[in-house]
Structure formats: structure tokens, C-alpha cells
Design a protein around this nucleic acid. Structure first.
Lengths: 184, 184
DNA sequence: TATTTATATGTCAATATTGACATGTTAACA
DNA sequence: TGTTAACATGTCAATATTGACATATAAATA
């Protein structure tokens, strides 16, 4: 999946690995994240496959920044993937629910402490999303042309709306669950 | 994580790989799933680590069923894990959102078709959960003692409630998103 | 000016997961 | 009785992901 995220971003404009990582942290991190180690290695792999080209910045760039550009083959791969239809449901994996499932074994107060801590984290995440909404649409930088950016906005907004819905649902569920355990 | 799910189930009672797989399909599949290939190999690994013991059924069992039992060390490992507190948020990974994020490139009708198909799948899942609620509490079989089963119920119910909440949120989001795209 | 923080790129071993291939038994049913 | 579906266990290669280790520059700040 990371492959297509990188192709998708590089289809907007050429970028370095660091820029791609930052962009993911600002936009896809609520439905897909990756460590820089995976990003750099995947970029190399995609270049080896001919889906990307890379150039080193001017010789006096001491940080060895390598700018990646999508190739024709890369664009074809991206659009071929987007032309398919996802027919399966993706399985959720939630560590906290595994722990809760077996929590009859646990000290009630320890479970409550854990759930309340998670509540804080999810509240922070929700707040973060609310702050994000405003400026997240400059994702491609100020100099990006409106023609490129404008059509993306409704789709970017929709994924962010998912993040907000998810956190709200999670908070509601945590509140219900905390109350249920308190009354046990 | 699979490790702790297997230890958790085997802490209820000894079981075979197949039984563990079936049990996961009936109970944890909405927050953690695994293929049988991973389950069988992980069971072997846990036995090698001394966290499980296994015995072959009576010699005339031609299916080579191997029944796993949790050891004292296994129980210690399980409770030690449950005694920790999860301090991080688990990152969501949702293929559909990756696709939607880059869907300005796509044919609008193709996107709508995909979202409507996903809507069907999530509706089926929700219906499945509603049917499950009734009998899912017999997870450990009819002969399981009430003392073992009763304390688990509120926790099992809570994870199922998460599944229902998730699907309801997802359906709402899909409806909103479908409408937004239709009006584009 | 010295220190800290942010920027920036990389490798690598270990682990986790997927999905295909392989095989045989038991139960149901036509 | 023959066929099909469900039951049951396993291997293995490929891929994906994690998380630690390693290193260096540039910018901000004390």
C-alpha cells in the first residue's frame, strides 16, 4: 500500500523522501503511516522497478537529498491500481480490544486506568484533527496551482472526516465502556 | 499480538489449532484476525518457548490433531502483558481511505461504485454482528462452567459493541461521502 | 559561541503477515 | 456408492513492517 501512497504523492510533484514522510505525517497518518526506514527503502525499490526516477540535488547539497520523480510507468501503475475496485473489507487490528477481551483476568482499576489514558489520547487526536482542518489543504505548498489542488480537496476532506468520525466513535465507546466497568 | 490471543484463549481451556482459529473467527475477528498458517506456526513457536505444551490425541486420530495447553510460564507471560498499560495509540490502516485520498484522478462513477460496494459489505457486517450478539457468549462451549464464562461476558460484549459502533460510523461516513461525490 | 533541535538519509536484523501450495479425513447428501 | 463440503494441519517463499543503530548538516537559541 505504501507503494501507491508514494506514487500518488509523487504524481502531484517531485519530492524527497523526507518531504514524503512529512506529507504523510500531515495527511495520511490517520489511515496509513510509515516509518522513514520503510519509505526510503521503498523509494529505492520503486526506482529499481522503473516506476520512479531520482536525481541528486546540485553537487553542493551536503545532505544527499535525492528528489524522486514519477515515470510514465509509475503513472500507469498508479492509475491501473486506482482503476480496480476494492471488493474486500479491510480487517481492523486494535491492540486495546485484544487486551480488553481478556480483561476479566485483570485488576479492575488497572483496566480503568488504561481506558482513561486511551481516552485522553483519543481526545487529543480529535482536537488535533479539528486544528488540522483549517490549514491541511495547503498540503502541496503555497506555490501549487489551484487547478491541481482544488479537485483534491473534497477527497482529502473526506478522509479527514473519517478520522474525526472514528475518534468520536472511539470516545463514545470508551465512555460507555468505562462506565460499564465502573458499575461492575 | 497473536501470541497473547492464543495464550488468552488457551488460558480458558486446552484447544487445537483449528479450534483456536474457529474461536477467533467467532469472536476476535472484528479487531484481530489471523490465517491458519500463522496460527499453527505461532503455536509451535510458543511451545518451543515453553509457554505451551501439546499432546497428540489418541493414536487412532488420523487428523493429527494436536491439543495445546498453557504452561505456568505461559500464564505468567499472559498476566505480565495484561499488567502493563498500553500508552500509545494504535495506528489505523484503511486501504479504502488511501484510494479515496487519490481519487480526484479517478472516474467519478468508478469511485461511487466502489463506495456503494463497500457500503453493502459494511451493512452485512453490521447485520452479522447483530445476529452474533445472541449466541456469541457460548464461545467456550455449552459445558463450560458459569464461573469461568460469566466474568468474561461484559468484556466480550464491550468488544462487540466496538464492532457495531465502528460499522455504524463507517456506514454514516460512506453515506455522507457518497452524497458528497454525487454532488460534485 | 556552544548547545540543542530540526532536518535529512540511510542500513539492517528481527518479526509479522500474507497467500499459495499441499494433503488427507470425516460427514452429509444425492 | 460417489461426490461434495466441511474439517484439519501443515510448509514455504515473498512481502511488509518495526525499531534500533548510525551519521551528518542546518537552524535556532541560550
Amino acid at each position: 500500500m505504501l507503494k501507491f501512497i508514494l506514487l500518488g504523492f509523487l504524481n502531484y510533484k517531485p519530492m524527497t523522501g523526507y518531504e514524503l514522510k512529512s506529507m504523510m505525517d500531515d495527511s495520511t497518518m490517520h489511515f496509513w503511516h510509515a516509518y522513514h526506514s520503510q519509505i526510503y527503502t521503498t523509494l529505492r525499490k520503486l526506482e529499481a522497478e522503473g516506476l520512479l526516477d531520482s536525481v541528486q540535488e546540485d553537487g553542493d547539497d551536503k545532505l544527499n537529498r535525492r528528489t524522486y520523480t514519477i515515470t510514465g510507468a509509475g503513472r500507469d501503475e498508479l492509475t491501473a491500481w486506482l482503476d480496480t475496485t476494492l471488493t474486500a473489507q479491510v480487517a481492523v487490528k486494535e491492540d486495546l480490544l485484544v487486551r480488553l477481551f481478556f480483561s476479566a483476568l485483570r485488576d479492575k482499576d488497572a483496566v480503568l486506568t488504561e481506558l482513561r489514558l486511551q481516552r485522553q489520547l483519543h481526545e487529543q487526536k480529535l482536537e488535533y484533527y479539528h486544528n488540522l482542518s483549517a490549514d491541511s489543504m495547503n498540503l502541496l505548498g503555497d506555490e501549487a496551482e489551484l487547478e491541481l489542488v482544488a479537485p483534491q480537496i473534497p477527497f482529502w476532506t473526506a478522509t479527514l472526516r473519517f478520522g474525526v468520525g472514528y475518534e468520536q466513535m472511539y470516545l463514545q465507546w470508551l465512555d460507555d465502556t468505562i462506565q460499564m466497568i465502573e458499575e461492575l
